[in-house]
Amino acid sequence: MDKEIITVKDLTKTFNGLTAVDHISFSVQKTEIFGFLGPNGAGKSTTIKMLTTLLQPTSGSMLMNGHDPAEDPHKVRQTFGIVFQDPSLDDELTAYENMEFHCILYNVPKTIRRKRIEQLLKIVELWDRRKDLVKKFSGGMKRRLEIARGLLHHPKILFLDEPTLGLDPQTRNLIWLHIKELNKKEGITVFFTTHYMEEAERVAQRIAIIDHGRILTQGTPKQLKEKTRSQSLEDAFIKLTGRAIREEEATSTDRMRMRRRLFRR
């Protein structure tokens, strides 16, 4: 029986000599919540872009629900939804219009459209602001709207690239609660990256740690902690990569070392 929904083998991407993703292999099981962790510049977003048909890989192979994103992008686009790391809203439209636009692109039936938009906008506490142009929103409000929009349709695979970065803990909890429910009720596979280690430990069923474009290790949070003899995932991460995950925690020598290592390649 075929239980793998994402299969990646020797996937590589180079940008003019810089190897952003370096022969990575991993797989994600159906209905799993999979965490993809790594420091800044590790290659997480680049991997997601290749899986979601936005970038052509330099080499290697991928399968998303049985289709190759590089060969058959249209088929693959029918299987996933994504919340991007970078903004992707239309500032000149209102919050509601952005949501509606998404529903039409993803063919969400008219009968459930309104109800779902309302439900999600309420979860992210933007229902009262639905008629405001997005350009008038604060950064956190825009982020919340992005997430709400990404959850409008129910795909087979949901990509979340640092979904909750910069949000307050209460909103983060609400959002994750909703995502977990979707995962359980609709069997949606979730592939996410995050900078919050406790978040990863709490929600991810399996984790892969990537650094400098290479996967260092993968397994359940428990396995990773045992393997590195650490108390927390945060400690395990530091032992594996030699530094903390968050940019603000990385010292300048860390960053220099990182650059030098990239340079040498």
Partner: peptide, 9 residues
């Protein structure tokens, strides 16, 4: 915003 349309089915 272009990304939003480019990954749509």
């Amino acid at each position: 915003f272009l990304k939003e349309t480019l990954v749509a089915p």
